[in-house]
Write a protein that binds this DNA or RNA. Structure first.
Lengths: 184, 184
DNA sequence: TTTTATCTACCTATCAATAGATAGATAAAT
DNA sequence: ATTTATCTATCTATTGATAGGTAGATAAAA
C-alpha cells in the first residue's frame, strides 16, 4: 500500500526533478540534487526510481496528466474554438508566470535527440496528446491560425523566446495574435 | 600567427561541439568527446577554450555569424517581405534537413536558465540579431503573421515539434502558413 | 650564422568533484 | 514474517580542469 507520506515524498521528488528539468534540461537534474532538496539520501531516490530514465519518464507523465487536467475537455458546446485556444494560451502563460520556467515539453522536445528513449517516448506521447486536444478544440474553426500543429508550435516557440529574452510578453502577444486569427 | 591547420582544428572542435549541442543541449558535449572525435586530447581542447563556457560562447557566435551570412541582407529592393520570410523559412528548413538537428538557438534558448551566463549572453545576442533581421525584412508588411517575434517563435516552435515527432513537414507547413499570411 | 628566447599547439599525467548505481543494514508498518 | 522506505557505505565512470613537459616554428640578439 502506498501511504500518504510516501505519496508526499514521491511528489516532492517529482516536483524537484520537474523544476530542475524545466530550467536546464534533462541533464540539469541529479539524484544528489534531488535528494538534498527533498531531505533524503540519493540512494533513497534510486529506491523510488531505479534509473534516471524512470524518473524522467515519471516526471513527463505526471506533467502530461496535470496539463490536460488543467485544460479540461476540448469539447464544450458552450465555447467557441477561439475561447478554447484562449484557454490553452492561458495555460501556457500561467505556467510560465507561475513557475518562471518553460514548458517541460519545450525543453525536452528541444533536446529530444539526446534523451533516453523511455523519456523521449513520454515526450512524444505528450505532444500527440496536446495536438489531439487542440485539433478537437478547433473543430469547425477556420482562418490563418486554425491548425493544431501551428498553434502548438507558435506557443511553444514564443515560450522559448520569452524565457531566453526574459520577456513574458512575447508569449502573451503570440497568444493574442493566434486567437485573433481563428474564425468560427 | 594562426596557421591554416590551426584554423582547421579550431573549426573541427567547433563543428563537433555544435553538432553535439544541437542534438542534446549544452551538457551533451564533453571535452573528451570532442577530443576523441577530432583526434586530439582533451587537454588540447582546453588549450583552445580554457573553460567550457568559452567553447559554448564560441559555438554560438560562429553559428550566429554563419546564420546571418546565409540569410543575406533583409533589405533588398527586388524582394517583397513575403519573399524574405520565405528565405528565412528556407534557412530553417534547410538547416533541419541538412544537419538533421534543431537550430542551436532553439536548444540553448530552451535551457536558457541553466546555461553559464557567458553562453546565455551569446544566445540572447543571437536572438536579438535574428529579430532585427526579421523586423527589417518585414518593413511595410501587414497581415496576421507580420510580426518578427511571432514569426521567429512559430518557426522555432515548429522546428522543435518536427524534431520531437520526427516529422520535418511540421516545420515546412508552419513556414507555408506564415508566408501565406503576410501581406504587402 | 649561430644562439637565445618566445610562442604555438599539442602531449602525459593527474586532480577533485560529481555522476548514476548498487549492496547490505535497519526500523517501522502491515 | 514480510514489505516498505529509508539509511550507510561504496563502486566505477566521467566530468571539467590543471600542471608540467615537448617538438617545431618564429624571431630577435650575439
Amino acid at each position: 500500500m502506498i501511504t500518504k507520506q510516501t505519496n508526499d515524498r514521491l511528489s516532492s521528488i517529482l516536483d524537484v526533478a520537474e523544476s530542475h528539468i524545466r530550467r536546464g534540461g534533462f541533464n540539469a537534474v541529479s539524484f544528489r540534487d534531488i535528494a538534498t532538496a527533498v531531505g533524503i539520501k540519493s540512494s533513497s531516490v534510486h529506491y523510488h526510481f531505479p534509473h534516471k530514465h524512470d524518473l524522467g519518464k515519471a516526471v513527463v507523465e505526471r506533467y502530461a496528466i496535470n496539463f490536460v487536467e488543467v485544460l479540461g475537455s476540448p469539447i464544450n458546446s458552450l465555447e467557441t474554438p477561439t475561447m478554447r485556444i484562449e484557454r490553452l494560451g492561458a495555460a501556457y502563460s500561467g505556467s510560465l508566470a507561475q513557475d518562471g520556467a518553460i514548458c517541460l515539453a519545450c525543453v525536452l522536445g528541444a533536446e529530444s535527440a539526446g534523451l533516453p528513449e523511455e523519456v523521449n517516448g513520454a515526450v512524444i506521447a505528450f505532444f500527440k496528446q496536446l495536438l489531439q486536444w487542440t485539433e478537437e478544440a478547433l473543430t469547425g474553426a477556420q482562418g490563418p491560425a486554425a491548425d493544431a500543429s501551428y498553434i502548438i508550435s507558435a506557443m511553444q516557440g514564443a515560450m522559448v523566446l520569452s524565457i531566453a529574452l526574459n520577456d513574458p510578453r512575447k508569449l502573451e502577444e503570440a497568444v493574442t495574435r493566434l486567437v485573433r486569427f481563428i474564425e468560427v
